[in-house]
């Protein structure tokens, strides 16, 4: 579906995407995970054929975005990072007018709008204006708009950023259904749980480069341990406790507010901590997540 080799995007002298290799296969859900400014949106815009690459090669659906932009875009669905709905039009009109850009007849556009509004649970709001809708509803409408042309490939730039947990789960559930229908999804996120829930494969991006690639599980196995113990100490700095923890874990990360112990057996490690009479103010044993992978790869946390 997508093949990128050494893909580069420069804005003036600034390099936002610095030579990435990506391959997305039909039917999979592929994720770009990374912090603010990693170059996720810049990459998505190149894939969406609205931003010409500054270097490298890019092929989408077997075509060249520089020469065949409209033909590629006809088969894409795009949900941009910031909603750009027409606030003055009704929910329904946003879909029907957009469908016309794809050469879809008025009758089909109306039928599809109805169907999609049911799909994203906005059927009841079909004739209300967009402006008063909640953030989650607008997001769902943007996603519905991305589907009016029954795309083969859907690009979702941070589909759930800014939504409350309930709204996020609804979006995830809909995206999961799309995936089951065989639609290829490419999404960016800086939420670990989103990436773990939705993505078959993902790349971790940082500073315009790819730091790692694989399935969420494979990444966790490769770059982290099975379990993590989080310790919070009542102290000016967690640093002073780090020295006393040597040997307890395979790897220790010291964050401003807590210490993470990377271990195979979390309960065992926690017992050892207590045996050393270190008495953390709070402690938690959990499974490793992509957050830990990211921390390991970049030395930074993804969301604070």
């Amino acid at each position: 579906m997508i093949v990128a080799r050494g893909l580069v995007k420069r804005f003036g002298s600034f390099t936002a995407v610095d030579g990435i290799d990506v391959e997305v296969r039909p039917g999979e859900a592929f994720g770009f995970l990374g912090p603010n400014g990693a170059g996720k949106s810049s990459t998505m815009r190149m894939i969406g054929c609205v931003s010409p690459p500054s270097g490298g090669t890019l092929r989408i659906l077997g075509m060249d975005p520089r020469r065949e932009g409209p033909a590629i875009r006809a088969r894409l669905g795009v949900c941009p990072q910031l909603d750009n709905l027409d606030q003055e039009l009704t929910v329904r009109e946003n879909l029907t007018t957009y469908a016309r850009f794809f050469g879809i007849s008025r009758a089909v556009a109306r039928a599809r709008a109805l169907e999609l509004l049911e799909f994203v649970q906005l059927g009841e709001r079909a004739d209300s204006k967009v402006e008063p809708l909640s953030g989650g509803m607008k997001r769902r409408l943007t996603i519905a708009r991305a589907l009016v042309n029954e795309p083969d490939l859907v690009l979702l730039d941070e589909p759930t950023t800014g939504l409350d947990p309930q709204a996020r789960h609804l979006v995830w559930e809909r995206l999961f259904r799309l995936k089951q229908q065989g639609v290829t999804l490419v999404l960016t996120t800086h939420y670990m749980d989103e990436a773990e829930q939705l993505c078959d494969r993902l790349v971790v991006m940082d500073g315009g480069r790819i730091a790692a690639e694989g399935s969420p599980r494979a990444l966790i196995e490769r770059y982290s341990t099975r379990e993590v113990v989080e310790l919070r100490f009542q102290a000016e700095s967690q640093e002073e406790y780090a020295g006393k923890l040597t040997g307890v874990a395979e790897r220790i990360e010291v964050l401003p507010d807590r210490i993470l112990l990377y271990v195979t057996d979390g309960d065992g490690a926690l017992a050892e901590v207590h045996r050393r009479a270190l008495a953390p103010a709070s402690s938690l044993v959990r499974r490793s997540s992509l957050e830990d992978v990211f921390l390991h790869l970049t030395g930074r946390t993804l969301v604070d």
């Binding site: 969406g48 609205v50 932009g69 409209p70 033909a71 875009r73 006809a74 894409l76 795009v78 941009p80 910031l82 750009n84 709905l85 027409d86 606030q87 003055e88 957009y98 850009f101 794809f102 050469g103 708009r145």
Partner: peptide, 12 residues
Amino acid sequence: IKIYFSQVAAPL
């Protein structure tokens, strides 16, 4: 309203 940006993502 940034409508042009949504239009340029369509096959226009």
